[in-house]
Each structure stands twice: as structure tokens, then as C-alpha cells.
Amino acid sequence: MNEQEIIGSVTRALHRGTRELDAATVARLSALRHHAVTHADTPIRGGSGTLAWTQRHTWISGLLVILLLFAGWTYMHKQELASGVDTDLLLLTGELPPGVYADRVFAPWLQGYRR
């Protein structure tokens, strides 16, 4: 069997395979083609929904993510400041629970905190 005979034999069989596709698949392919050609002007990619919207509006989505991150960072920073103020108040008024003074790590922490 030489090379050309093999190529001819295989391609003839493959062509026959495409001709013998079942009717349902042929109809489905035809419907897909019709959809693709007739909806060329409609943005189909991604479908509908939030994910599809973000895919179509990459810049706005990116900006929203950055704003969300900034808002999160600001919130965390404010919480940290408020926590510091609370600690100062507790230390100054001596309202810490007695068990705190028995904690071995409290004294070194207090030294560092005063600095």
C-alpha cells in the first residue's frame, strides 16, 4: 500500500463519514450556522447575566474591583485606629481585666506599646 493509496483510501472514507452524518446532527449544524450568520451584529459572546456583563465591560469591571479593594482597605484602617483608641482608654482608666496582668506576654507587649 503506497502513500497516495493510503491517503486516498482514508480521505474517501472520511468524506463518506460526513455524508452519512445522522439527520439530527446535520439539522443542529444547520441551526448553529443560521444562528451565527443571522446574529452577527448581536453581541452573543458570554450570554447574559453578571459574568457576561463584566466580560463585555472589562474597564468598568476593573475599576469596580479597585474601588471595592480601596473601600475594604479604608474600612480595615479605620477599624485598626478605633481599636488603638479603645486600648488606650482601657489602659488609662485601668479597666483591664485582672487576668490580663497575669498573662506572661502582657508586660512585654505593654513595653512595646508605650514606645
Binding site: 472520511l14 463519514g17 460526513t18 455524508r19 452524518l21 446532527t25 446535520v26 449544524l29 444547520s30 448553529l32 450556522r33 443560521h34 451565527a36 450568520v37 443571522t38 452577527a40
Partner: peptide, 19 residues
Amino acid sequence: SPQEIDAFLAGAERRAFKQ
């Protein structure tokens, strides 16, 4: 044209599916 694209895809779709 849309007709040319349709005609091309009609000829290629079965082989594309098989591939």
C-alpha cells in the same frame, strides 16, 4: 457577504464537526 459566509460554512460545517 452573509450569503458567501453562509455558503462557505454550509460546505465546511460537517468536516469541522468531524474534526
